[in-house]
Design a protein around this nucleic acid. Structure first.
Lengths: 201, 201, 201, 201
DNA sequence: ACGCGCGGGACATCCCGTTGCT
DNA sequence: AGCAACGGGATGTCCCGCGCGT
């Protein structure tokens, strides 16, 4: 595909808007961020933003979409890693924790999805896809004999996701996510004994 | 204490404002709630609200304060219950879960505290007091021999709080907190094996 | 006249309201002063103010009235001083300058009268009575031969008043009235040669 | 300079806002003028005003700035007139008096500068530049022998400015500035004998 | 593809004044 | 004589979105 100069410019501008918007939404929440602030930071006018996104809500939606693409890429990476069962989940959670700590573009969508009722448009339900993904891995772990009998995969997956996002939230509030990675590690240490088969006799 | 007619009226009005404000803040977040909406729901004017609270931020702050009082009452109840160690925590968490599910006045402050940067005034740090309280109970459990050697009380407490609030958040998003109580029960089932002493031999 | 305790209290309260109101109006102007501020400074409520004065405008009007009484007392003092003609005016101007510099209760009415269109009620025209009073003294000076022939008393009086209030205004703005008294002295030194008879031959 | 259509429109709108604002501020003072009134008179919305001026205070500030430019133009005109010493001052004062009488845009800034404490931002000190300018002319007059020995230039200048602005104020209050020009003429007649050298014998 | 000028409409703030209580 | 709760209304601020320019 040949890319005109014009097209390159457009793509770059659109990306920079998304980046700055993600940072601001992450820091201050949807309702408190003014489009004029985003425009000012980029040294463009609101008109430019409205050329790329039809409304403020659409911009937020695009920020969320960008994040979902990132998740899909991450999942593909897990598959490539050839990790199975709980080990895959542990690796994945560490990866996500690092991303969340370091990338505003990853934190922003989470905040936006929580505020979806305020935004007024339908954003993808936050945690459901995660529970589903984790459930698939737990089922795999069950087949590998890593899970105590009598536990439902979905139930276990739900608790894992809850523990992870709880850690994320509290670490974010108390230490600006600085200790998130090790907290997630600890979570696994405490959680695995309750999941794994007690006596493999 | 003598209660004049006026004082009664004032207390009642103030309480009703707080109640409605808590419901709205819970549902839609601080920034998206207009004082005029609260006023309309109460069939009073904004002037009346302004008489009782010097600003929107002060109103939010009062909502949070009301919530903290509720927590203190809950802790006192735990003490009266004569429960010790992990059992006390489990009872407490079930109690809090029910409260959170049923009382908007309990959910609202949590949301407000998360949005404290938008509100602009200093709200009490959300989770720190909880970690401290839980830490005390874990220490007690350590003395009772309920905790595996080598675990730090504060670390365990942090994970319990994280698991609890994670469950709260996800249950709130996915089922409007309907399944919160059982989810918290399950959390304990999965978590306790990792905490308790493995072999009391 | 017998004064009940109640009556004394009323008079005192009324006077203190007037005093504080004068200070605030002097400092910040009619429109920018809130009755609630005056009430707060006196540690009473607005209701108290409304018992004594039927409206904010009425309060301002009362402040102006208080000032006019002060002027009348001053004029009576001039009469008692047995000064005649220009000497009387010079003494009077020095006295007024000192009052203006030291008493907010004297400055406030001047500012209020200038803002009378904003207040909405009819306040006594500011400078007219002054020109009239000064005119009377100039006529007396004419009879004493202190005024050059060909000058109209009213014209001279107008200029004296203008010079005085100009000095007042500028001294107020530049030095908070600190140098007002000497500036007025200088005014007479420069003005008298133009007024007095040139050659008393 | 190329003038696009849009630029012309902007300049015109901005100028008309300034004009109407000056008239209103002149008539009713800063605090009593509502932006909505200015907008209504111009048949635009407050949003339009807010586009051109970031706040009400900024609008007032711009009105004052416009006035200062006018003064500078006037001073340049005096220089061109090739008048020297007192004659220059007399010509200048007559010119200013006419301007003040006829142009609301000239009166408004004076009122605004007096109310600068209410406006909240720093406006140029009102009378100081005038005293300085007049002082320079008086010094010139001293060199020309027009000033009696023993008089300080700054002192004389201060009195001239005071007399002028006093006349302005009183003429404004009593006759809506109708008699201002002749009053200022009379001022010079009364003031010059006190300034000029008595006997050049 | 982007900028400018503007519309329209909220929203928090805050203020004057009134009515029923003491 | 004084106070407390509240009504009603206006104001400055500010923001999203549009439509014409270019």
């Amino acid at each position: 595909v040949q890319a005109t100069l014009r097209e390159q410019q457009r793509v770059r501008t659109r990306a920079s808007i998304l980046r700055v918007a993600a940072e601001e939404f992450d820091k201050r929440g949807y309702a408190s961020v003014a489009l004029s602030e985003i425009a000012a930071r980029l040294e463009v006018t609101k008109g430019t933003i409205y050329f790329h996104f039809s409304s403020k809500a659409a911009l937020a939606s695009a920020v969320v979409d960008m994040y979902l693409s990132a998740w899909e890429a991450l999942l593909a990476e897990v598959a490539r890693q050839e990790l199975r069962g709980m080990a895959a989940l542990r690796w994945l959670s560490a990866r996500v924790a690092r991303n969340y700590r370091d990338e505003p573009g990853v934190r922003a969508p989470l905040r936006l999805m929580r505020e979806s009722d305020v935004i007024g448009i339908d954003l993808p339900t936050p945690f459901l896809p995660w529970v589903e993904t984790v459930t698939r891995h737990v089922r795999e772990a069950q087949k590998l004999g890593e899970v105590r009998r009598g536990l439902e995969a979905e139930t276990v997956a739900w608790q894992i996701v809850a523990g992870f996002f709880g850690a994320q939230e509290i670490s974010h509030q108390l230490t600006a996510s600085a200790d998130l990675v090790e907290r997630v590690e600890t979570m696994w240490d405490l959680l695995l004994p309750g999941i794994e088969s007690r006596d493999p006799s």
